[in-house]
Nucleic acid binder design. Structure first.
Lengths: 196, 196
DNA sequence: CCTACCGATCGGTAGG
DNA sequence: CCTACCGATCGGTAGG
């Protein structure tokens, strides 16, 4: 049975902070416990292992990215690959900015998962990237995007998106919405045809 | 006195591999020693601490980025901000692909440095990013780039560049040169004016 | 570069 | 959720 109580959620929250700030390997179970004002060993009343905490964060964040992308594509209500890619980029920025710490842990700490879990996440990441690449290919197909390497372009855009947690501040100069606008713009233009 | 012998260089090389693959915190001094077929304690005949190894990698890689950028801008021999930004992006891709493991360690593991060293690297990173931002601003100024947020654009491009180690393979489908071409193209276009 | 060793800390368990 | 505890491993030192 998977625990889903308030305490369990608190664990994921403080662990996300610490894993983001110092990395999974440099964060001890006692570091997490200290932030919750309990003893290190007491954490095991709620979780079976340290890796389970990482898994919980990574798995739920993967689901968040997938769900938000699904919704965005449904809402788009259009077959235009340009609009659909814009919706995907916007959704991604929204997911990242809504919880930058979890997004950052998801993007950088999954190598510390067990081999089986790592493989599972690897597949989901591939499928997610495939959406980007597919829409880029579609856009090239209809002549909306320049003839370019869709794989490189998808990596380019996704790397830029995943870099957001490194500099985003909730109380920063730009709101999450404005950042999303900028990123949609930069991403679409990077694929645009010359009109000179 | 800083040791610069062949063994010392080997240490940085295998440490770069391990720090890249598993992260600094998850790599033990004995892991590094094992790859060199020596005892864990023997490593301390060559280095004063584990952190000194990380520092050596990070510091030399920062220098490599700076030097290659300097050369590229000198070679550019032009005041055109578009050409100069292209040269900077190309130089960055070259530095990353010439040693992706070191580039990746530089980009992701510097948080494990001591506070003073972290601050030093932070300043150098800021200065480096400032070159990108400055050229973007210049390009906007002369009307070559669209009116956009230069800080966001610089983060966008630099994050994309720093994502390369995550997917680049030396024996992969694309040569380092071709990747550089693609990235120059994607980066410049992302800043381009509409001509519609 | 080795052997022998150090104190500290790690993730995790037992039993309440 | 606590106290008490476990074996393993950590970065690093002493002395050769």
């Amino acid at each position: 049975m998977i625990e889903t109580g308030a305490r369990r959620r608190e664990i994921d929250e403080v662990a996300s902070e610490l894993f983001h700030a110092n990395g999974y390997a440099a964060t001890s179970v006692r570091d997490i416990a200290r932030k919750l004002d309990i003893q290190g060993a007491s954490l095991y009343a709620h979780v079976a292992s340290k890796e389970d905490v990482l898994w919980s964060i990574v798995d739920s964040t993967a689901t968040a990215f997938e769900r938000r992308a699904d919704e965005a594509l449904e809402d788009a209500q259009t077959g235009d690959p340009v609009d659909r890619l814009a919706a995907l980029v916007e959704a991604h920025v929204e997911t990242v900015t809504s919880d930058p710490e979890r997004a950052s842990v998801f993007a950088t700490e999954w190598r510390h998962l067990s081999p089986d879990r790592r493989a599972l996440i690897g597949e989901r990441r591939d499928a997610y990237e495939h959406r980007f690449r597919g829409l880029i290919e579609d856009g090239i197909g209809v002549g909306a995007f320049r003839q370019t390497d869709a794989t490189v372009a998808a990596d380019f855009i996704l790397s830029a998106l995943n870099g957001i947690p490194a500099w985003y501040r909730e109380d920063g100069r730009l709101s999450a919405d404005r950042i999303a606008d900028h990123f949609v713009d930069l991403a679409l233009r990077s694929l645009s045809e010359d009109h000179r």
